[in-house]
Each structure stands twice: as C-alpha cells, then as structure tokens.
Computed example of a mutant assay.
Amino acid sequence: MARIQPHHPAALTDEQRTLYQRITGGPRANGPQHFALTAPDGSLRGPFDAFLLSPQVGDALQQVGAAIRYRTGLPDRARELAILLVAAHWGSAFERESHVAIARSLGVNDVELAALEERDVTAFTGVENLVARTVLALLGGDLDDELWAEASRELGAQVVFELTALVGYYSTLALQLRVFRVDE
C-alpha cells in the first residue's frame, strides 16, 4: 500500500505546480510516449509524484533524470540496457515497466529483455556489452582497474561519468519507489 496519497493537480502549491509543469511539459512529455507520466486523475505516476514532497529537491532530481535520458553520450539502446540493469538489480517494477517500453521501441527483443532481468549481458556485443558490464560493476560498488581501462578507452571518461550518474539516479528512484511503496 502506498505510503503517500497522490498529489492531485488541483491541490498543488505554487512550487509543486511549477515542478508538475516542468515534468509534464518537459522532454519526457515531448515525442513518443512509451509510458504514461500521469494517472487518469492527473496525478504524476511513479517517482515523479514523490518529487512533489520536496519541490526543490524533486526539481533537481528531475533535471538530472532529463539530462541522463536526453543529453548524454550514450547510444539510446545502451542507455536503456543500463537503466534496465539498474531496475533488475533493485527489483524496481515501475522502472522496468517504463523502460521496457522504451527499450522495445529501440529494438530490444524479448530474449534480450529476459537476459537483462537476469543480469546476463552475454547476448550483447560491442558498446552495449561494455556499457552493461560497466553498469553491473558500478552496481557492485566500483570498477576494477581492468574494466576502468577498457571503459575509459572505449567509451571515454565522460560516458563513464554519465554511467555513474545513471546508476546513482536510477538507484535513487528505486529506493524512493520502494520506501514510498509506489506499486505502479
């Protein structure tokens, strides 16, 4: 059972309303919609509703998320594989639901999705395999020197930095979803 009640748009404070509009009118809402940002009553779904508890922190988080989703050096498919590995690691149903839809739109098939859920990255090659192995190591707490050398050489230090931010951001969302018992 959810630990907080959904924030209905009509009951939002000015700060909450500004954040709500940034989320629903920002890059997540533009282009193809692979998952619904809002529930039928207009409240935000998933972690975004909890962002409204602290609009200043929530806004900072949503900006980080938008940067990770839309402004990194990661190829789109590799980014979604990384997000799905974080979701699998933390057992985050909302992250999985949302990003499976995006991954499918990028050509990730059922066999690959099942492998990601098991954290098996052997089906992937090239950059996707390296990104996936890097994410798994980051979820374990660090990159050893060998993987750091390979990742920084092949992906670049900027993308390795972006992957650390991705793992941290989606791990934060998974924690918030779990703590606030967001089931959808």
Rank of each mutant, 00 (worst) to 15 (best):
M1F: 12
Q5K: 03
Q5I: 09
Q5F: 05
Q5V: 08
P6H: 09
A10H: 11
A11P: 10
L12N: 09
T13Q: 05
T18P: 13
I23E: 04
I23R: 00
T24P: 06
G25M: 11
R28W: 08
A29Q: 01
G31T: 14
F35N: 03
P40R: 06
S43L: 07
D49R: 07
D49G: 01
D49S: 05
A50P: 07
F51C: 00
L52Y: 00
S54A: 13
Q56W: 04
Q56V: 15
D59E: 15
A60T: 10
Q62G: 09
A66L: 00
R69I: 07
R71E: 13
R71T: 07
T72R: 14
T72A: 15
T72N: 14
G73F: 11
D76M: 08
R77A: 12
A78N: 11
A82C: 01
A82N: 12
I83M: 01
L85S: 09
A87K: 02
H89F: 13
S92C: 14
E95H: 05
R96E: 12
R96F: 05
E97F: 15
S98Q: 14
A103D: 00
R104E: 13
S105V: 13
S105E: 01
S105A: 13
G107A: 02
D110Q: 15
E112F: 07
L113R: 06
A114R: 12
E117G: 06
E118A: 15
E118R: 15
D120K: 11
D120N: 15
V121G: 14
V121P: 03
T122W: 09
A123T: 08
F124H: 06
F124Q: 04
F124M: 07
T125L: 14
T125E: 15
G126K: 06
G126C: 13
V127D: 04
N129T: 12
N129F: 07
N129S: 15
L130F: 09
A132G: 00
A132F: 06
A132R: 05
V135Y: 06
L136K: 07
L136E: 05
L139R: 05
L139T: 10
G140L: 07
G141V: 10
G141N: 08
D142L: 11
D144F: 04
D144L: 08
D145W: 02
E146W: 09
L147M: 06
W148A: 10
A149S: 15
A149G: 12
E150P: 00
G156I: 12
A157N: 14
V160D: 08
E162M: 00
E162R: 07
T164W: 02
V167G: 04
G168K: 03
Y169S: 13
S171R: 04
S171C: 05
T172K: 09
T172Y: 13
A174C: 09
L175R: 13
L177G: 10
R178T: 11
V179M: 11
F180G: 12
D183H: 10
D183A: 12
E184Y: 11
E184L: 06
